[in-house]
Amino acid sequence: MTLKAVVNNVAPMTASKDVVVDIQKMSLTFQTADGPVYALSEVDLTISRGEFVSFIGPSGCGKTTLLRVIADLERATGGDILVNGVPAQQAREQRAYGYVFQAPALLPWRTIESNVTLPLEIMEISREERIKRGHDALKLVELNGFEKKFPWQLSGGMQQRASIARALSFDADLLLMDEPFGALDEIVRDHLNEQLLKLWARTNKTVAFVTHSIPEAVFLSSKIVVMSPRPGRIIDIIETDFARDRTLDVRETPEFLEVAHRVREGLRAGHSYDD
């Protein structure tokens, strides 16, 4: 973190140079015709550099909303959110993160290469540089050779990998992923989870990952944030210490099952059975 960023950090909080996301007493209320909906309430969370943080919880617990607040796609109605030491909006304008949505959201009129280099094009980076970086990003997700294809010529899993390559192409340190593999079948999902883990281990990026799958959360994360609905809040934060180069086999170990059990207990405790 540069000195400038620390100086910009006007909020009186611990400006550790390793904190990428710092959320304090953040709340978000949607005003609807049926009255206010408390999407998030009093959320406190810090994400450090190099962490892989999963947000898990039932639908409606605000995990996607939380990710969108970090990305400045949604504005909090209370509290502070700092990303890289600056307010979320400023961080977005500095292109501090790559965002992967639930759907690939590839533009159908662009080839895979030109989709992946779209952010670079918006940042007005030269053409040769774009092609080089796009090529590198596609290599990271093992999609090299598909540069000239159109999105609809690729399978769902490949499309989602292309959208990850797009988020990686401009080399932001922070990767925000909103249930990126939710629509894929289990085999493809396992494979992509392994690839993502390798990518994380290799690039040392910070990842925030929304999921509703317990095995996925436990397998991928170094920190699991368990959330509960109405209002959306954090009820447990679990740190794990699996090796960074773990494989899918880790899912059979007692440690893994123990963490998974704790996550499940947390989810159960936070779940309201009135519906």
């Binding site: 796609l73 977005r92 500095q94 292109r95 965002y99 949505f101 959201a105 918006i122 940042m123």
Partner: peptide, 8 residues
């Protein structure tokens, strides 16, 4: 939203 994340 995608374009917004690139501050387009």
């Amino acid at each position: 939203d995608l374009m917004a994340t690139y501050a387009s």
